[in-house]
């Protein structure tokens, strides 16, 4: 064997681990990472997932066929996020992850359909995962990436780490514990954003204890605006009747209502300490 090729034979299983938490943070105190603080966007160049063997590429169009020393990317700055290689690779990674998740989700739906067919006794009142799920699946890549990014922000918190450590999956109860919104369901943009907000508000319950109570209030005000206070109240009634239905669904129905009265009456809510737990009643 030639000297050249000798060490090309590497461990082929150099798989990257499942990394869903991509993203630095805006809010430093409970975020795990993000020293450069830049928020990356990937929606702008959505569209094309590179397949192996494809000649096309998202750089190609702006390039001459002949050698022209293409600089292409311009200066690396915080403003030129799209251009920097670190962000490009992260976006690429997220895109691939989303597509992989999509395949998994499809398989899971198929599996669920089969078991449902087997035991037809259930009158299908639960309505959460019947066969129309497959048709209602969100497949728009731009939407999925946007949603994934929002989820990543939520997961990229100390609170989330503490939550998944303290509450094992089988202990989590719908309506009580935060449940990551399902990015593959069809929701209106607004409904989705509300779900994310609700989820993040609930996650804050697991924020690490802080020594100085002073800026806690400040930070919370920054993140918990009045809408969030409203959301908590909206979310709580689901406690009573939601043992069977997933929280996201129930909240969804509320949010749809919310959506219909477009006048944003939410703003009227009182300005009390946002961390105060609302009444269960």
């Amino acid at each position: 064997m030639s000297d050249w090729t000798r060490d090309r034979q590497r461990d082929a299983s150099s798989s990257e681990p499942d990394r869903r938490n991509i993203g630095p943070s805006r809010w430093s105190h409970c975020r795990k990472r993000g020293i450069d603080g830049s928020l990356r966007t990937s929606e702008a160049d959505g569209g094309d997932l590179k397949g192996v063997g494809q000649t096309g590429s998202r750089h190609l169009d702006s390039r001459h066929a002949s050698f022209t020393t293409p600089e292409g990317t311009g200066p690396v700055s915080r403003c030129g996020r799209q251009a920097d290689w670190g962000s490009q690779v992260e976006d690429d990674e997220m895109r691939r992850d989303v597509h992989r998740d999509m395949q998994r989700y499809r398989r899971r739906i198929l599996g669920a359909e089969v078991t449902q067919r087997e035991r037809k006794t259930s009158s299908g009142s639960s309505g959460s995962c019947d066969s129309r799920e497959g048709e209602n699946m969100e497949t728009d890549e731009a939407v999925l990436l946007r949603r994934q990014k929002q989820i990543n922000y939520g997961k990229n918190t100390l609170a989330y780490d503490r939550y998944i450590k303290e509450v094992p999956k089988h202990m989590r109860q719908p309506g009580i514990h935060p449940k990551t919104p399902n990015k593959f369901r069809k929701y209106s943009r607004r409904s989705w954003d509300q779900q994310i907000k609700l989820w993040k508000v609930k996650l804050h319950a697991w924020d690490p204890p802080r020594e100085d109570g002073k800026d806690k209030a400040l930070d919370n005000i920054e993140e918990l605006d009045l809408n969030d206070v409203m959301d908590i109240e909206l979310d709580f009634p689901t406690l009573t009747d939601s043992q069977s239905a997933p929280a996201s669904l129930t909240t969804h129905s509320f949010l749809v209502e919310d959506e219909e009265c477009l006048g944003t009456p939410v703003k009227v809510q009182k300005t009390e300490e946002p961390t105060a737990e609302p009444d269960m009643a």
Binding site: R10, S15, K50, H59, F67, V89
Partner: peptide, 24 residues
């Protein structure tokens, strides 16, 4: 380019730069 992969495939961001270097 050889060692760092994203989900087992080469990093797209490096493909053209690597080609540019080799063309040079």
């Amino acid at each position: 380019f050889d060692y760092l992969k994203v989900n087992n495939t080469p990093m797209v961001a490096l493909v053209h730069p690597v080609y540019d270097c080799l063309m040079r």
